[in-house]
């Protein structure tokens, strides 16, 4: 098919350079690259040179049963209009990842969010300080083993209202 050419070319190019990497294009203007942790920054640099100038977002998924965190780097190219997802998995027990700030400056905020919400450490990010939460004392809230309903019960619901307090 003609319209899928760009995706197909990119796929072959990536596969020829990187080993242990899977590339697929599930639909038009989408590219999924699954690679290993150590190769991430190389793959990102490679894609950046090929027009993927902007890092849109970084997502994190907690695969609690596999004991892994999956990190998804969303890259966007304005010339070809392709949206690329670069994925990798890291260990859940000791979640450490290299910061992507040297490649994309705006990774800082996204990494900060993931650090706060999932507890993933990003080596080389100078600003891992709380972004949204105020003096959070529990485990990172977006992890799957954090039960929000139980937390609400034990934190907010146990506080008596004024009437309850006055009536004993």
């Amino acid at each position: 098919m003609k319209i899928m050419d760009r995706e197909e070319n990119l796929r072959e190019e990536i596969l020829s350079v990187f080993k242990n990497t899977e590339v697929s294009s599930p639909k038009r203007k989408r590219l999924t690259v699954i690679t290993e942790k150590a190769l991430i920054s190389e793959v990102m640099k490679f894609l950046k040179d090929r027009g993927f100038k902007q890092l849109c977002a970084i997502s994190c998924i907690d695969w609690i049963e596999e004991k892994e965190f999956e990190l998804i780097y969303h890259l966007s190219s304005f010339e070809s209009g392709i949206h690329a997802m670069v994925k990798t998995k890291i260990d859940r027990e000791n979640p450490v990842m290299k910061s992507m700030i040297p490649v994309f400056t705006n990774a800082q905020t996204y990494e900060r969010e993931i650090w706060e919400m999932f507890g993933v450490q990003f080596e080389g990010n100078p600003r891992l300080i709380p972004l949204f939460l105020d003096r959070w004392r529990d485990i990172p809230p977006f992890r799957k083993d954090f039960d929000i309903r139980e937390y609400v019960k034990r934190t907010f619901d146990v506080i008596p209202s004024l009437e309850e307090k006055q009536n004993g």
Binding site: C56, A57, S59, C60, I61, D62, I72, H74, S76, M85
Partner: peptide, 21 residues
């Protein structure tokens, strides 16, 4: 500007992970 949504389903009646950009 660009609003993005990354969503993962594991075949359940609820989404497994939703991430807004």
């Amino acid at each position: 500007g660009e609003l993005g949504l990354y969503m993962v389903s594991t075949g359940e009646d609820k989404p497994y992970r939703v991430h807004f950009r």
